Simulated assay, not measured.
Amino acid sequence: MPKKERKRLQVVISEEQDALLTRTAYELSSPERLISKSEVVRLAIEKIAKDLGEGESIEDYRAILESEDIIDE
């Protein structure tokens, strides 16, 4: 069976964001399965899309994006 084709995305994140990714991956991992930071990012993308599809306020996400912690450099 052929592998799924995936697209690559490179982003610049702060040390704090990297630490959050690492901690989240560690917390989601189990002795049977280690979760990668890439998997955490993919999960977050799916969760945000699902939330927005279920009527979650776009303004809540916009407010997060406009905070100092998320701004692109």
Results as ranks from 00 to 15, higher is better:
residue 23 R to A: 14
residue 24 T to K: 14
residue 24 T to R: 15
residue 24 T to Y: 06
residue 24 T to G: 03
residue 24 T to S: 11
residue 25 A to E: 10
residue 25 A to W: 10
residue 25 A to C: 12
residue 25 A to V: 11
residue 26 Y to S: 14
residue 26 Y to M: 14
residue 27 E to P: 04
residue 28 L to A: 14
residue 28 L to E: 11
residue 28 L to V: 03
residue 29 S to D: 02
residue 29 S to L: 00
residue 29 S to K: 00
residue 29 S to Q: 00
residue 29 S to T: 02
residue 29 S to C: 01
residue 30 S to K: 09
residue 30 S to V: 05
residue 30 S to T: 14
residue 31 P to L: 03
residue 32 E to I: 02
residue 32 E to V: 06
residue 32 E to Q: 13
residue 32 E to C: 09
residue 33 R to V: 04
residue 33 R to C: 01
residue 33 R to G: 00
residue 33 R to F: 00
residue 33 R to L: 02
residue 33 R to I: 00
residue 34 L to V: 11
residue 34 L to D: 12
residue 35 I to S: 08
residue 35 I to P: 02
residue 35 I to R: 08
residue 35 I to D: 03
residue 36 S to D: 05
residue 36 S to G: 08
residue 36 S to M: 07
residue 37 K to W: 05
residue 38 S to E: 12
residue 38 S to F: 03
residue 38 S to R: 11
residue 39 E to C: 14
residue 39 E to H: 13
residue 39 E to V: 13
residue 39 E to T: 15
residue 40 V to N: 07
residue 40 V to S: 02
residue 41 V to R: 07
residue 41 V to H: 01
residue 41 V to T: 10
residue 42 R to Y: 01
residue 42 R to Q: 09
residue 42 R to L: 11
residue 42 R to P: 00
residue 42 R to M: 08
residue 43 L to T: 14
residue 43 L to F: 11
residue 44 A to F: 04
residue 45 I to A: 13
residue 45 I to K: 08
residue 45 I to M: 09
residue 46 E to R: 10
residue 46 E to S: 10
residue 47 K to Q: 07
residue 47 K to E: 09
residue 48 I to L: 12
residue 48 I to M: 11
residue 49 A to P: 01
residue 49 A to G: 03
residue 49 A to Y: 04
residue 50 K to M: 03
residue 51 D to H: 05
residue 52 L to K: 01
residue 52 L to D: 02
residue 52 L to R: 06
residue 52 L to S: 03
residue 52 L to N: 04
residue 52 L to E: 04
residue 52 L to F: 04
residue 53 G to C: 04
residue 53 G to P: 12
residue 53 G to R: 12
